[in-house]
Write a protein that binds this DNA or RNA. Structure first.
Lengths: 181, 181
DNA sequence: CCCGGATGAGACAAAGATGTCTCACTAGAG
DNA sequence: CTCTAGTGAGACATCTTTGTCTCATCCGGG
């Protein structure tokens, strides 16, 4: 009878990605449980958001692992990265927005780890001569987040086709990063 | 003794750009007026947000006018566009985020006008042969929003220098759009 | 100088969300 | 079958924000 904590988080993520201001009651209904049970699993809204953050970081880390960022050409790694991140793009956009609210207090160290891994990829591309060096790896990482977020929203709003997600982002990003540009 | 409505809006924009969940009381304090007076000027929070939206659209329209999007090379127009938009980048990011909450109901027609003007610029660049044609103007417009938003946040968080704002965005965007990429 | 309109401060109720608690019910283990 | 832990439903108080209202005060125009 034990509720599936993972299931609750995924339902909450799906709902909050669409409507970030959903109430605990709405989250509970979306997960198919009562508000009381939701509260038994997560002490409060903050705890739920933190748990979602942990889940998102976990999924991102897994995506980065699957993308094998330190193998082969950096450009190919970017391709794999965007491909692996696509399934969690909407969720990521939600977390990034939500994270901006946590200004100052307890910034989860996990974000720095993700940032570092992606930044390292861009730096590797620069050092290998694949990428131009007049755009900092930190900015490229931020830009990637922005493009992924824009892509996720554009797809969700139906302004662009979902099948073009990877192509659009990778082509635009790499085109600007490629040294031959 | 009449309060400066424009001043209130600018103060509200500056505050809400940093903390989107600020209360009416905080907004009033930031504007240097009482909550009662704030309420006399704007019927409620919704009215305030709508007024901010109108202000933002007005500023964006002015920025687009100043950028003379239909003059000269499309790439140069993009340069001018980013330069003109920079001062309102943070504000724009706030409005775009806030706008996503207004799902469905009264979408302000002004956004479509802005979208159309920028989309037309990219289309012009494609038709003149300056820009590659395998990335849709609609996506490029969305991507520009994403990059501007990322740039604004990165500058605000101190991750990149403010003086690099234009260069970073234009170089990354154009590099991906330039046909020779 | 006097008056009117606007403001600031604060009280007040209403609404929404949250967190806690109780109680009946049910599924599953033993 | 019985017992128990976990669940759903809902009541309840609390907190925050919002929107309204009143009243004293102040500033400027006539």
């Amino acid at each position: 009878m034990a509720v599936d904590r993972e299931h609750i988080l995924r339902a909450a993520a799906a709902l909050l990605t669409r409507k970030a201001t959903s109430t605990m009651d709405e989250v509970a209904k979306a997960a198919g449980i009562s508000r009381a049970t939701l509260h038994r699993q997560f002490a409060g809204r903050d705890a739920l958001i933190r748990a979602l953050e942990a889940l998102g970081l976990e999924q991102l880390d897994a995506a980065l692992d699957a993308a094998r960022l330190d193998e082969g050409a950096a450009a190919d790694a970017v391709h794999r990265l965007v491909a692996e991140v696509e399934p969690v793009a909407g969720f990521l956009a939600f977390l990034v927005t939500e994270n901006q609210l946590f200004e100052g207090d307890g910034m989860n160290e996990g974000w720095n780890r993700i940032d570092d891994r992606i930044t390292a990829l861009f730096r590797r591309g620069q050092e290998s001569g694949e990428f131009r060096i007049d755009l900092s790896p930190v900015w490229l990482t931020e830009a990637l987040y922005g493009l992924v977020g824009s892509g996720a929203w554009a797809v969700q709003d139906g302004r662009v086709a979902a099948k073009d997600f990877q192509f659009m982002i990778v082509e635009l990003l790499l085109g600007g990063v490629r040294r031959s540009a």
